[in-house]
Design a protein around this nucleic acid. Structure first.
Lengths: 330, 330
DNA sequence: GAACGATATGTAATCGGTTAAAAAGGCTAT
DNA sequence: ATAGCCTTTTTAACCGATTACATATCGTTC
C-alpha cells in the first residue's frame, strides 16, 4: 500500500502539503493540487485510517451495542443505522451483548480503537464514565442525554382506541413489558388512558419481565390458563403476537371472532404471516437512520437542533381485529 | 487514557520492557513483571489497539460482509460468527452490501483499518487482489480458497427421501434457486438423485433467480397458477415455505392433506409458526462459529487442518408433511 | 579466569499520518 | 522602499505502540 510519503515524493512536495490537500484545511496551490491528485491516482493511494486515528485520537468508527438479533426488529434497526452511517463515511464496530456484564469489555475494546461514539440499543449502560458520546435508540436508559425513540404513549393509546371500539370486546388481556422500561410504562399508560374511559371492560395484566422472546412459553401458558378466556389479547410486540396467533389457531380458537390479537412494532415479518396481524407500526428503519444522523451531528459538532428525538407511530389495521361497532360514547 | 510511557515511568523501566511484558515474547524479570503489573493496575492501562495496529500492520479487526438481514438466517449466522470471534479476542467491522458495487468501497475501508481478514457471506467477491485472507460462508464464490458450507447434496436428497415416500405424492413443484449458485445446484441434484428413482412423479421446476425474499410475489404467483395444482411444494428456503404455507391457508387449501410443504434452513423462526414446517436443518450457529474459527486459525497461522469445511444437515420432520406410505421400492 | 549462552533491560528508529511554527514569495498600501 | 498581509510550502515534533540492535549481568563449563 502506498503511503503519504510515496505520494509526496512523486508529487515533489512535502507530506504536510499532501495532508493539507487531502483534508482541504489549508492553502494548497492549484498546480500543486493537480500534481498531488495525479500522484494519488497513479499510486492508487488511500490514507491509512489507523495512522490518522493515532495522530488525531479520533476515527470514523462507531461502536454499535445491541442485545441480540433474535427479534427481527433489531436487524431492521441495524439496517437503518449502518445504512446511514455508511453514507456519512462511518464504519460500524459490532458489539453483541449476551448479557450486561460484557459491557466493560466492549467499552474497552471500543476505546482502544479510538471510536468516535457509541450507539446502543442494549438498554442500561452503566453510569461509569465513557469518554465518547452515546446515542441510545429504542431501549433508553435513565439519564440518557442523547436518544431516539418513538412515542410509546401514542402507540398505547392508538391500540386502546382501536380495540375498545371493536364489537364484542369485554375482556382484554394485556401483556405488559418490564416495569423497568420507560417504553413499557408509557405504552401501558397510553393504553390505560383510553381503556379507563370504558369502565365496563375487564382488563387482565400479564407481566412479562423481559423482552426476551425465549421466555415466551411461560407468558403463553399464563394467557391460555385464563378463565374466562379473553376476547382480546394485546401483545407486547409482534413476535409475541405471532406466537399467540399460532397458538390460537392450533387450539381452534377463531381469530378474530372469538379472540382478537394485536401486536406492536411493525416488523417486516408480519408480511409473511396470515392472517395479517394488526399492530402499531414503528418507523424502524428511520429510527435507525435518525439515530445515526444524530450521532454524526454530535461528532461533527454541528449546531445540534435536538438531542432527544421522538418519532411518531401509526396504527396498522389487520385481519386479527374485529370490526368496529357503532360508536356510542361519541 | 494512560499510555505505555506512563506505565513505564511509574514502574521505573523502559517502554520496551513493558511492551515485552504485555506481549510475553521476551525475557522479563520476575520483580520487574510485578512492578509493571502494579503500574498497569494503578493506571487502569490498556494498550491502544490503534498504535499497535500502526506499528505491526495488523489488528484484531475482522471485516464482515453480508447481503442484508431480511432473512433471519443471517442474524443467526452473525450471532455465531461474532460470538466466536469475541471469544477469541477479535472485533467485527460491519459491511452490509446492498449491492455488489459496494464491495470496493468496503474493501478500501477495511484495508485502511488494517483488518486481519474478511468473512463474507455476500456471494461473489470480485477476483481483484485482496491483501488479507477471505473466508466465505454459506454463499461461496468460485475458486474460493477458504470456506465453510453445508452438505447441500445431502440436504436435497434428504428432502427427496422424505417427500417421495409420503402418501398421495404424484405432483411436485420445486422452487429452484439461482443456477449461478453452487448451493442451489447441489441441492437440486441431491433432490433429483432421489426423485428420479420414482419415474411416476411429475416434477415442475419453478425458477427463482435470486435469494431475495422481496421477489417472492412472482414466485408465489407462478405456483398458484399451476394446473393441476401440486400436492407437494419444495421451497427454496424456510422463508419461502412460510409465505407459501400462509398463502395455502388463506386459500383454504388443506396442509398437508391437499398439498404438503417443505422448507430449508431451519431458521429459529419456524418455532413460531403453526403448523410446524418440515425442513432441512442447517447448524446455522455452528456454521458461523466454525467460520470464525477457521478465520482465526488462518490469521494465527496454526497448522491448518482443513481449509474447506462442510457441515452436515439433518432432516426435521414437521406437520406440513403427509405420513409415509408403505415403502414399495425397497 | 576466559569464553559462552541464557537472562534481562535499554536506546532509538519506525509505522503513516497530522500540525504548530517558521519561512519565503507576492501583492497592496503608504 | 518598507511594512504588512495573504498565500504557499517546509521542517520537525508528535500520536502510542513494536522491535532490531546494543549492552549488561549472571552462571556454567573447560
Amino acid at each position: 500500500m502506498a503511503t503519504i510519503r510515496d505520494v509526496s515524493k512523486l508529487a515533489g512536495v512535502s507530506t504536510t502539503t499532501v495532508s493539507r490537500y487531502l483534508n482541504q484545511n489549508s492553502y494548497v496551490g492549484k498546480k500543486t493540487s493537480e500534481k498531488i491528485q495525479n500522484a494519488i491516482d497513479e499510486l492508487n493511494y488511500s490514507p491509512s485510517a489507523v495512522a490518522r486515528s493515532l495522530s488525531t485520537s479520533s476515527s470514523n468508527l462507531i461502536g454499535l451495542l445491541f442485545p441480540n438479533l433474535s427479534n427481527p426488529y433489531f436487524p431492521q434497526l441495524i439496517d437503518g443505522i449502518e445504512g446511514e452511517l455508511k453514507r456519512r463515511g462511518y464504519t460500524v464496530l459490532l458489539g453483541r451483548l449476551d448479557n450486561k456484564d460484557e459491557f466493560p469489555s466492549y467499552l474497552r475494546t471500543f476505546e482502544n480503537n479510538n471510536i468516535a461514539g457509541i450507539i446502543s440499543s442494549a438498554g442500561i449502560i452503566p453510569a461509569q464514565k465513557v469518554s465518547v458520546p452515546i446515542v441510545e435508540v429504542d431501549r433508553i436508559s435513565q439519564n440518557s442525554k442523547y436518544f431516539v425513540t418513538t412515542n410509546d404513549f401514542l402507540g398505547g393509546s392508538l391500540i386502546g382506541d382501536n380495540v375498545a371500539r371493536t364489537v364484542g370486546t369485554t375482556n382484554i388481556a394485556i401483556i405488559k413489558g418490564p416495569n423497568t422500561s420507560r417504553k413499557s410504562i408509557d405504552r401501558f399508560e397510553g393504553l390505560c388512558s383510553v381503556l379507563l374511559k370504558y369502565p365496563a371492560l375487564k382488563i387482565t395484566e400479564i407481566a412479562s419481565n423481559t423482552f426476551d422472546i425465549k421466555l415466551v412459553d411461560s407468558v403463553i401458558k399464563q394467557i391460555f390458563d385464563l378463565d374466562p378466556f379473553p376476547d382480546t389479547i394485546i401483545a407486547q410486540n409482534d413476535l409475541y403476537a405471532i406466537v399467540i396467533l399460532q397458538e390460537l389457531l392450533k387450539r381452534g380458537i377463531k381469530v378474530p371472532e372469538q379472540t382478537q390479537v394485536i401486536g406492536y412494532d411493525g416488523i417486516n415479518f408480519l408480511d409473511l404471516i396470515y392472517p395479517r396481524i394488526a399492530t402499531v407500526e414503528q418507523p424502524i428503519y428511520e429510527l435507525g437512520s435518525e439515530t445515526a444522523n444524530l450521532m454524526v451531528q454530535i461528532i461533527e459538532n454541528s449546531n445540534l437542533k435536538e438531542t432527544q428525538i421522538q418519532l411518531d407511530v401509526k396504527f396498522s389495521a389487520g385481519a386479527t381485529l374485529r370490526p368496529t361497532r357503532k360508536e356510542i360514547y361519541h
